Amino acid sequence: MRNIKLLIEYDGTNFVGWQIQPNGRSVQGEIKKAIKEIINEDVNLIGASRTDAVVHARGQVANFKCENKIPTESLKKALNSILPDDIVIHAIEEVDPNFHARYSAVEKTYRYFITKNKIAIGRNYFWFVKYELDFENLKKCAELIIGKHDFEIFSKKGTNVKDYICEVRSAEWKIEDDKLIFEITANRFLYGMVRGLVGAMVDVARGRFDIDVFKKILLEKCNDFEIMHAPASGLVLESVKYPNF
């Protein structure tokens, strides 16, 4: 039995998310269907991150086990020849039998993209924020979230996990022309967590509430203020890191 690892890029605009669902196209479903067409095996395709509807990825990782002996480079070419244009397989390799795309991951990096000017071309990859934003307050918020914290209040309801503690290893806002980019790396992420953090930080930066309130929400889990979740379209899974196998 072989264990095959995939490095995947996809445009999430027209997907219901990574995971197979009954109500529309999923990235997992499209890749599983293509694999079956090529090797005639119905594989269990495991993704590193269950990205939500409309969320994009440049560095999604997945793995599956199979009996077929097709060379990995041949499999990559075959998959890219039949997959839809909004999914690309960038690399395929055979890995240790114990490798698990989700549970073997030690950290993930996401980026969130904001445009301060309304755009037509590229609108599916940015959140257009019409408010004036205080960039220094964005930076201060990002500094506060570094370290181990309980992020339950920033995640979406229905998150089914044993605990809500995540270790944020880096968090930074950058300016590129008229764009704002938030990059965050952590050992794990909760459902909707990045979008909740971005929404709350933008609320601070536009003056809806001050940074002391943000600190109270983060450190004391104060739920007196409703957390705004940023739109999914601006979020990209950039990379997933694994220990050596």
Results as ranks from 00 to 15, higher is better:
Asn3Val: 00
Ile4Cys: 00
Lys5His: 00
Asp11Glu: 14
Gly12Ile: 14
Trp18Ile: 07
Trp18Glu: 05
Gln19Phe: 04
Pro22Cys: 15
Gly24Glu: 09
Ser26Gln: 11
Val27Ile: 13
Gln28Ser: 03
Gly29Leu: 12
Glu30Arg: 11
Ala34Leu: 14
Ile35Pro: 02
Ile35Phe: 04
Ile35Lys: 09
Lys36Met: 14
Glu37Thr: 09
Glu37Ser: 03
Ile39Lys: 03
Glu41Lys: 07
Ala48Phe: 06
Ala48Tyr: 00
Ser49Ala: 07
Ser49Pro: 06
Arg50Gly: 08
Val55Thr: 04
Ala57Phe: 00
Arg58Ala: 04
Gly59Asn: 01
Gln60Pro: 03
Lys65Glu: 15
Lys65Ser: 14
Lys69Ala: 08
Ile70Pro: 03
Ile70Leu: 07
Pro71Ile: 01
Pro71Thr: 06
Ser74Pro: 10
Leu75Asp: 04
Lys77Val: 15
Ala78Arg: 05
Leu79Pro: 00
Leu79Ser: 02
Asn80His: 02
Ser81Tyr: 01
Ser81Ala: 14
Ser81Trp: 01
Pro84Val: 03
Asp85Phe: 11
Asp86Trp: 01
Asp86Glu: 00
Val88Tyr: 06
Ile89Trp: 00
Ala91Gln: 13
Asp96Tyr: 06
Asp96Glu: 09
Pro97Ile: 09
Phe99Pro: 02
Ala101Thr: 03
Arg102Thr: 07
Arg102Val: 05
Ser104Gly: 10
Lys108Arg: 15
Thr109Asn: 14
Lys116Gln: 14
Asn117Arg: 15
Ile119Ser: 07
Ala120Asn: 12
Phe126Leu: 11
Trp127Gln: 05
Tyr131Cys: 09
Asp134Asn: 03
Phe135Gln: 04
Glu136Asn: 13
Glu136Cys: 05
Lys139Trp: 04
Lys140Val: 00
Leu144Glu: 14
Leu144Ile: 12
Ile146Met: 11
Lys148Cys: 08
Phe151Arg: 15
Lys157Tyr: 06
Asn160Thr: 09
Val161Lys: 11
Val161Pro: 12
Ile165Ser: 11
Ile165His: 13
Ile165Asn: 13
Glu167Cys: 10
Val168Trp: 08
Lys174Ala: 11
Lys179Val: 12
Ile181Leu: 08
Ile181Arg: 10
Glu183Ile: 12
Thr185Gln: 15
Thr185His: 13
Ala186Val: 03
Asn187Val: 09
Phe189Leu: 12
Leu190Thr: 07
Gly192Pro: 04
Gly196Arg: 04
Gly196Trp: 02
Gly199Asn: 00
Met201Lys: 02
Val204Thr: 01
Arg206Tyr: 07
Gly207Glu: 02
Phe209Ile: 00
Ile211Val: 06
Ile211Cys: 01
Val213Trp: 01
Val213Ser: 02
Val213Tyr: 01
Phe214Leu: 02
Phe214His: 05
Leu218Val: 13
Lys221Trp: 10
Phe225Tyr: 09
Phe225Arg: 08
Glu226Gly: 13
Ile227Met: 15
Leu235Cys: 07
Leu235Glu: 04
Glu238Val: 15
Glu238Pro: 10
Ser239Ala: 08
Lys241Phe: 05
Lys241Ala: 02
Phe245Ser: 05
